[in-house]
Design a protein around this nucleic acid. Structure first.
Length: 100
DNA sequence: AAGTACCGTTAAA
DNA sequence: TTTAACGGTACTT
């Protein structure tokens, strides 16, 4: 799977995408959290960039990654969209909780 | 509060 | 090849 060789993406991207994809539904993490998880707590900017160019487009919950500050940060489809997405996911979790 | 430095990749010149 | 920019964060003014 994730070889050190270049397929289309670099190891950095793989780590970012993998980590982002591992975020549970209805949950959010900060760019810093992701950056740290991949071993580059300073590359928060690079992380954001990787998500922006997200090769897995809508298949990766890049919208679950927000700012450490609490702000949503940016989003390829629009920060507005991101906000709605998070809200929707939150509701889904709520529904699952009330009727297992 | 505002500006600067830094991370890693892509696009442009 | 070199420069600029970006979906951030922390440090310094």
């Amino acid at each position: 799977m994730s070889s050190k060789k270049k397929d289309e993406l670099t190891s950095f991207e793989w780590k970012v995408l993998r980590t982002t994809a591992g975020i549970p539904l209805g949950q959010t993490r900060s760019y810093k959290w992701v950056a740290k998880a991949i071993g580059k707590p300073k590359a928060v900017r690079a992380v954001g960039q990787a998500l922006n160019k997200n090769p897995f487009a809508p298949l990766i919950p890049c919208h679950r990654v927000i700012r450490e500050n609490g702000a949503l940060g940016g989003y390829a489809g629009g920060a507005k969209r991101k906000k709605e997405l998070l809200q929707l996911e939150k509701e889904i979790v709520q529904k699952l909780r009330q009727r297992p």
